[in-house]
Every structure is written in structure tokens, then in C-alpha cells.
Write a protein that binds this DNA or RNA. Structure first.
Length: 410
RNA sequence: GUGGGAGUAGCUCAGUUGGUGGAGCGCCGGGUUGUGGCCCCGGCGGUCGCGGGUUCAAGUCCCGUCUCCCACCCCA
């Protein structure tokens, strides 16, 4: 019996693992500069937390969540996203009473039971940010700006779309208007959308079926239905974004799949990703903290799909680095062992070939691990009390008298 | 959950009407008594995804199943 990783669950081996770390590192540097601090949150939670925050009727909760009963009889879920846990932690630890506003970030695996596809795995990785306690439009613009800076640092090209989906005051009005419009043209909608009409008519705006798109293109848009406060808020967000030099497009048909969003929503998309084109997305969720039992607290955030970003990173050729020690015979090998320990203590990457094969095979190994230099210790070197140093880029080789000189040459 | 395509060496793939499974790359060794990349030669390496069926005989035909890829759906 040979074991394989489960469907949609992948190992990240070098160099993919290094790509992963690069994305995480870039993300952290960008958000830490903006004052975000890391929270390390549990990978599983009480299942009810996600039902209440993400939405009872969403596919994530109804079909895609890994739910199981633990040995204490609790209904437990592997987290399908990060915001619910962050909000839970924010409330649980009374953070609202300790800080005027809070900026958190998190990185880690998420789980959804879906059919695997390009850019979609059952275990996938997100890096996300959350801001609590700020209702001002400047916060929206800043968060979107931070998100843009992450992708820019990674040289990932994107299109940014923003929209406002209003608040609980104005959204119902729009919902009514949309519903009224769609009902007149029900027979033109796809079967899926006919179902959405009942559950969540806003999602019809998202449909990819051509006939639905045509209907939607004539449908009323939410931006015409915003209440005064939401309209002013959205206007300010757009102004500040321009001020910050963040390029964006207003997409009045942009909606989000999670129930907790209010007002500002945004999506960073790439054209190079196939069907799963969203690389980073988020929005404001002013009602969520109170919905989960905390005090009225405005909040917003976003999550980035690390796996999807990785697909967009340009391939870079590995540069040669460090030293590879080639030896002949036991005595030379012993000197080699001492040498790599010495070099490492000086902060230099150093390796040796323990197999003690031919010079040729050791040289091959040095090339294979992309070493920059080879230090040769053989009979001649032992006899003459020197080291040979070969530069694998230039192919030039020279005699080195001692460790001091070696360090100076590296 | 639905639909299409695909599983043969570590990787990428070829394999004729069913008749003892190949190449390239990689790895190891040699050509070079102590020198990588290029070239030449040799070697290691296979339950042909798994299970069943048809057949004298199955990588090849049939059924089932698992996995991968792509799309729907969903979403970061």
C-alpha cells in the first residue's frame, strides 16, 4: 500500500516551498509597514461560528465545509476562511476595550471541500488583514492600498474593481428593485439563477451565463440606490484611492459571496489565472462583530490567495551561492568537515559530499546544488598545505594559502 | 454535485489489427590515473493507477473505481 496525499491536498516541495515563503515574506513586510500585527488563529473552530458569520445559506457553509464531531461531541469545522476566527478572537479577548482601533494579519491554510481545479485546492493558503474600530472611508482606501502594494511588490499584474453594496438601510431597497426587475424576466435566467432569486438575488449579478449577463446588464445598479451615508462614504473611498495613486475601476455589479459584507467591496483579479481569477478580495463588514456577540464595531479586511499568487510569480533562475567542498581521502575529508563548520560559523553557506566519490562526481554534485565556489582538498593540497578554490561561474581556479585568504575571496 | 480530457520508468511522453514494453530528460558510472556545464558510451530504473471481466493471449477491448487536468458551480 502506497499512500498518497488526499485529493486536492498538495505537498509544497522546493522550489515551490521557497516561492510560498517569498509570498508570505513580501506580504508580511508590506502589512507590517502599515502597522498590522500577526495573530495566529486556530485551524478548527466550533462549526456554528462559520454558519453565523459566513452565512447559513452560502455554499461554503452548506456544501464545502469540513465538519466533524470531536470526541467531546462538539460540532467542529476546519476553517474555510479566516475572518470569522479573527472576529471571534477580537471579541473573546475584549480587544475593543483595550485599543482604539486594531490592525491584525494572519497567514495559514484554509479548507473547503470542492472539486479541485486550476487555482482551487481543498487545502489552500490565505494571507489576510483585518481592521477593527474604524468606520472612516480613509481606512477602506488605506487597506485597499496596502493590498495593492503587496501585489506590486510581487510583480503580479492585476485589475482592481471596487463597489459599494450599501448597508442594511439601503440594500433592502435595492434588493427589492432588483428582484422586481428580475421577476419580469425570469424565463431568460439560467436554472441556477432562478434558484438564486429566492435565496440571494444579488448573486445573479455574478452569473457567467450569457443570457443572464444580458439581463443583468439592463438591471438596476446598486450605486443608484445607496443611502446618503453610503453614497458619501463610497465617494470618499474613491477620492482617497485616487489620492493614494491606486488605479481602480468601479464595477456596480461586483458582489461578494459571503453574507457579512457591507458598503465597500473590492476584488483584485488577474487575467492569467483561468477561471479562478480572483487573487485577493475583501471589503467592509460593519455588522459582523455585533452579530457575533461583540459591541457595535466597524471593521474591514481582505484575504489573498497565496496559491493563486504563486501561479503568477515569474520563474527566476537560481543564482549560484555558497561553497561546496570536494575532498579525496579520509584526511582531506576530515579537513573538509572542519572547513564547512568554519564557513557556516562565518555565515557562509557550505556543503560537502559525504559519499566520497570521484572528483568528477563531487564536482557534478557541486554544480547540481548551484554552488558558487568549490574548495578542493586533495593529495596535492595536503602536501603543499594550501587549498584550491574554483569559481563555478568563471571556471577559474586558484591556490589559497589559508582560511583568512579564503574568506577574503568568497 | 455536473460535464469533457487524461493516467505507461523519478519527470515528459511514444507504444501499429490484442502476440515477451520503448525514447528523451534525470540519476549512477566510464571516456579524462584530480575537476561541473557541452559531447560520446554504458548501467540502474516498470505491480503499464487500482480491481474485475472477455480471450489461448490484454498496456491495447469492456465494466467499475481512484487520482490528475480543464470547465460548470463556488470563491481567495
Amino acid at each position: 500500500m502506497v499512500f498518497k496525499s488526499l485529493r486536492g491536498v498538495e505537498d509544497l516541495l522546493p522550489p515551490e516551498s521557497e516561492k510560498f515563503e517569498k509570498v508570505v515574506k513580501t506580504f508580511k513586510e508590506a502589512v507590517e509597514k502599515a502597522g498590522f500585527r500577526e495573530v495566529i488563529l486556530p485551524i478548527f473552530e466550533e462549526a456554528g461560528l462559520f454558519a453565523r458569520s459566513v452565512g447559513e445559506t452560502t455554499d461554503i457553509v452548506q456544501k464545502e465545509m469540513y465538519v466533524f464531531e470531536d470526541k467531546g461531541g462538539r460540532q467542529v469545522a476546519l476553517r474555510p476562511e479566516g475572518t470569522a476566527s479573527a472576529v471571534r478572537a477580537y471579541i473573546q479577548h475584549g480587544i475593543y476595550a483595550k485599543e482604539p482601533f486594531t490592525k491584525w494579519f494572519y497567514v495559514g491554510p484554509m479548507f473547503r471541500f470542492e472539486r479541485p481545479q486550476a487555482g482551487r485546492r481543498r487545502q489552500f493558503f490565505q494571507a489576510g488583514c483585518e481592521v477593527f474600530g474604524l468606520s472612516q472611508p480613509g481606512a477602506d482606501a488605506e487597506v485597499i492600498g496596502v493590498a495593492a502594494s503587496i501585489l506590486e511588490s510581487l510583480s503580479v499584474e492585476f485589475n482592481l474593481e471596487v463597489n459599494s453594496i450599501g448597508c442594511e438601510k439601503c440594500r433592502p431597497r435595492y434588493r427589492e428593485a432588483l428582484l422586481e426587475f428580475l421577476k419580469l424576466r425570469v424565463e431568460e435566467l439560467c436554472p441556477d439563477c432562478k434558484g438564486r432569486l429566492e435565496r440571494n438575488p444579488l448573486r445573479v449579478l455574478d452569473c457567467k451565463v450569457e443570457t443572464c449577463k444580458e439581463v443583468v446588464s439592463e438591471a438596476p445598479v446598486i450605486t443608484d440606490y445607496l443611502c446618503d451615508e453610503c453614497r458619501v462614504h463610497f465617494q470618499k473611498v474613491k477620492e482617497y484611492l485616487s489620492l493614494l495613486g491606486v488605479g481602480f475601476k468601479v464595477n456596480p455589479r461586483l458582489v461578494r459571496g459571503l453574507d457579512y459584507y457591507t458598503r465597500t467591496v473590492f476584488e483584485f483579479k488577474s487575467e492569467k489565472l483561468g477561471a479562478q481569477s480572483t487573487v485577493l478580495a475583501g471589503g467592509r463588514y460593519d455588522r459582523l462583530v455585533s452579530q457575533l456577540g461583540g459591541p457595535e464595531t466597524p471593521a474591514l479586511g481582505f484575504a489573498m490567495g497565496i496559491d493563486r499568487v504563486m501561479l503568477l510569480l515569474p520563474q527566476v533562475e537560481e543564482e549560484r551561492e555558497g561553497v561546496f567542498v570536494v575532498t579525496a581521502g579520509e584526511e582531506a575529508y576530515r579537513k573538509g568537515l572542519e572547513l564547512i563548520a568554519f564557513l557556516r560559523s562565518k555565515g557562509i553557506k557550505a556543503q560537502i559530499d559525504h559519499r566520497q566519490g570521484s572528483f568528477k562526481s563531487q564536482m557534478k554534485a557541486a554544480d547540481r546544488v548551484r554552488a558558487k565556489f568549490v574548495v578542493i582538498i586533495g593529495e596535492e593540497e595536503l602536501k603543499g598545505d594550501f587549498l584550491s578554490l574554483k569559481d563555478l561561474d568563471t571556471g577559474k581556479q586558484e591556490k589559497i594559502s589559508g582560511l583568512e585568504e579564503l574568506l577574503a575571496r568568497l
